[in-house]
Design a binder for these strands. Structure first.
Lengths: 164, 164
DNA sequence: GTCCATGCAAACCTTTTGCACTATA
DNA sequence: TATAGTGCAAAAGGTTTGCATGGAC
């Protein structure tokens, strides 16, 4: 059971007012949907859920509102290589950019590793690079899919380099 | 100066024959372009370079050949969130999936961190996950852009969560 | 001669944009 | 009432596909 997330919708309203932008019903509905779900939602997910709850909001408005949520830093967008983006709220203090992604069922699990920022700092300093954010994605098979006997098959050359 | 990469084109030819697929001139030209460059090439990069060297190869053929190169595991595709994919050869024995990406000029630097596989193994075991591959991307500003005084500005709420 | 690849154009999918209309403040 | 948002449809941009032709084997 999720805690009440309506304060975050109000926070988004505050952001809009700060920017001199109108707080519309559509924006609040979409924000509320993002804040109420702990999943990574696609625009299509949102559109389908809006339709099934009787809301009539155009896709363009969904895209435009998601842009605002990302700009406000209350939400973040991800690209898991599916050909479209997914969006999630950023209610936790530290945004998590580390994911375990199942290649079979597409489930996304978040995790955090304190060691990772050490790696980020070290590598960056080695290259004179100023890091702003990072993204670690581990692709593989989740517990559930492993349990149902699914396996991944390699398909390329057995040993590309040594075989020349 | 790059070493001679034509053996890899022949290797790709071998892969095609193994699969019962014809080895065509277009496929060899595209493979050769991938193997001769150590950059991450977009389909557009390839198309432009083909045009300027007088080759007339359709975009569909480029896409289809890149698919084959990826299947053969002689090349890999990346999505850096630009809205299109980039391709690179995988001639190094261990494919590198760690990148420093400049948010200003788009330059991509590869790096390797031995500590990362430790993290991958540890996290995976914690979640009963079977890792197949990973991707670590650090976004920020490269040395060159930092040197020319570029900086990144945050734009969201100063402190989204505490401010409710 | 049989497949399969190629090139072109059309289709596709996600995302963006233009515009007439409506709602916010 | 001024300004910006909304919805729709069209456009845009990357990628895929259908089909007639041409090339590999």
């Amino acid at each position: 059971m999720l805690q009440d997330r309506s304060p975050f919708v109000r926070l988004f309203g505050r952001y809009l007012r700060e920017q001199g932008l109108p707080v519309t019903n559509q924006r609040e509905v979409i924000a509320s949907m993002i804040f109420s779900s702990d999943d990574h939602l696609s625009v299509d997910d949102i559109d389908r859920e809006l339709s099934s709850s009787g809301e009539k909001i155009g896709k363009a408005t969904i895209y435009r509102t998601l842009d605002l949520l990302v700009k406000s830093k209350l939400a973040a967008s991800h690209d898991f290589g599916e050909g479209f983006k997914r969006y999630e709220h950023r209610l936790s203090r530290e945004p998590i950019h580390q994911h375990l992604i199942c290649l079979n069922c597409g489930q996304v699990l978040e995790f955090q590793s304190p060691d990772l920022s050490r790696i980020e700092d070290y590598i960056s300093s080695q290259h004179g690079f100023k890091p702003a954010r990072h993204k670690l994605e581990i692709y593989g098979l989740c517990k559930k899919c492993l349990g149902s006997g699914i396996d991944l098959k390699p398909e390329g050359l057995a040993c590309p380099i040594e075989d020349i």
